[in-house]
Design a protein around this nucleic acid. Structure first.
Lengths: 333, 333
DNA sequence: CTTTGATGTGAAAGCGTTTTCAATCTTGCG
DNA sequence: CGCAAGATTGAAAACGCTTTCACATCAAAG
């Protein structure tokens, strides 16, 4: 006893009008006489008719769904963006197909292809390593692609970010202003544009402005995990660092706790400043000072931008830069 | 210059075979002569043909996408499940349409309807307040619905969980064993089945087993937020509690930090045990003791169960209970 | 009472696949 | 060599909706 689906045709028959008319009332097309509309609406209600979005998608070539590629939902930084994305997507009647990529190039390409096969109307990409292959896929896509909280050195795609260079420079400067000379730069893979082309650049700029020479012994390239941060203490000590700029909150929490566990007190003996201002900064003790970013908004604005692109509205600025700030909590003096 | 899409028909023409044959090779149907298959494959490659999943969905009545309703991606507990869901979904070639519900009944119903309109093949629901209306929608759905990490007192839907009653009872017992008599029960809304029908039941059981009488002054119904937990200290003190069982990790972190900030030392003066064993338990200091749950697996198993349901395979047990444990860290003696 | 320019409505052609069902080939065998 | 049983293929009908185009209707204008 498979449930019988009622189609637009059934409604048309019952209301003694054509499918076209039913389609019109369903889609809010104004060219329908009120009386007719009412009649159709009643039948729709009586039959509990629900339009089939797949058929609709095939006929109209619009699916009202967008693909979202995220490194890992489990990472609060990204899930915060995702939340912003989903909220405005819903606001504009879109749905989100969400897939985790682990920032794995091969997986990203594959996912991108299945998203395109599913005829998504647009794509939001998060991940900081836009390979040539990926770029090529973006280009081939008929659906617009916007990067959220993710940079591509070649700036070929629309994107929403903050000014990482300036933000990091400012954060590092604050550390310098507190008297630190040996400041560690702790972040993820240098293959990622955000680390290599932005954060590190900001770091170097701050050093240079203060007349401190750059020393790559102070640069720590690691995983974005709590554990990785936690086990960094010996290396940090060996390098003689007295402060650290960290590129991810979870990683920073690890660094800080590792330090604390080793008897180093933060911020007295060692200052830590992190990058993403997620909830985590408030959970740990001491609370972590951080660059602040409008996480939710980055996602929201990216999605909003995407809706414009999908509608072929013309947008004045393809790469939007949102404001950042610096929040002093207790992991810095 | 809109990109021209190549269809199955183009491939058929170029390969001088019928659409049916192309369809067969694309779908790996074995009834195709090897030579033909090769020829078609070559054309597909040359034309860079990519099947349109929407058309496929319409024709086959299968979309290979499942809907996932999540209270909030930003909550690590749920995003951990989501990660498990997505991974096995991908393993079985499904995609996930993810939507945040904020556990808001109205939104849930609405979302459920749009998911059904999009013809998802199945649905995974997270959220602990299955209203009658929701239950009715589930019933009406032709797509199977499984609950993940979420209970419905009426047990009408397939689900994957741990034994909350036993787990909480054990957790509370451990607190009792440490000499506590006044143990607070801190959790979310009592409207949620998981709190009212499971956790509280476990809590009462433990008390009863120990001959301690139940006192509803010790039950704190609040939001699942860090802030809510943090501001609970005065109330906890007023009630004379010396320990607390908390239903959510973020909330627990708030409780603990609130206590600490008020000069109460954990675990010496006050013990805290939490429920979800997310990353957060390790981030805070002291690290939080917790009930352990196979978060990722709950999601993964739920998705696996769903695949079976979608395939009409018959499953022996509709409600699967995964093992839990107790992890002693530093927030308990 | 005719003309005219909306305004409403319906017929039918897609949209790009899958899926019968029947037709056509091939084989193995006697 | 002839034939039944498979093995391969193709024709065409769905799938459920949107959209174009033409036709019918109607109120206002002349």
């Amino acid at each position: 006893m498979e449930k019988q689906t009622v189609t637009i045709y059934d409604v048309a028959r019952e209301a003694s009008v054509s499918m076209a008319t039913v389609s019109r009332v369903v889609n809010g097309n104004p060219n329908v006489k009120p009386a007719t509309r009412k009649k159709v609406l009643e039948v729709i209600d009586r039959l509990d008719y629900r339009p089939n979005a797949v058929a609709r998608g095939l006929a109209s070539k619009k699916t009202t769904t967008v693909g979202v590629i995220i490194p890992d939902v489990t990472n609060i930084y990204f899930s915060s963006l995702a939340r912003g994305i989903d909220d405005v997507a819903m606001m504009y009647k879109y749905n989100i197909i969400l897939t985790n990529s682990d920032e794995n190039g091969g997986k990203e390409v594959q996912v991108l292809n299945t998203l395109m096969a599913k005829q998504v109307d647009g794509i939001i990409f998060m991940g900081n390593q836009v390979t040539d292959e990926l770029r090529e896929e973006f280009r081939r896509s008929k659906a617009p692609v916007v990067l959220a909280g993710s940079v591509d050195a070649q700036k070929t795609q629309p994107s929403v970010n903050i000014d990482y260079v300036a933000a990091v420079a400012e954060a590092v400067k604050s550390l310098i202003d507190h008297g630190n000379r040996k400041i560690a730069f702790v972040s993820g893979s240098m293959d990622q544009a955000i680390n290599h082309d932005y954060r590190l650049k900001g770091y170097k700029k701050a050093l240079k402005d203060a007349g401190i020479s750059y020393d790559d012994k102070l640069v720590f390239e690691t995983d974005y995990t709590y554990k990785a941060g936690q086990s960094l203490e010996p290396a940090l000590a060996a390098a003689g660092a007295t402060a650290a700029f960290v590129g991810d909150d979870e990683l920073a929490a690890g660094v800080m706790n590792g330090l604390t566990d080793a008897g180093v007190s933060v911020p007295e003996d060692f200052e830590v400043i992190t990058s993403n201002d997620t909830k985590l900064t408030e959970l740990v003790r001491p609370k972590m000072s951080s660059i602040t970013q409008p996480l939710y908004d980055i996602g929201a604005v990216a999605m909003r931008l995407l809706t414009k692109l999908m509608n072929n509205e013309n947008v004045d600025e393809n790469t939007v830069i949102l404001p950042y700030g610096l929040m002093k909590r207790s992991s810095t003096k």
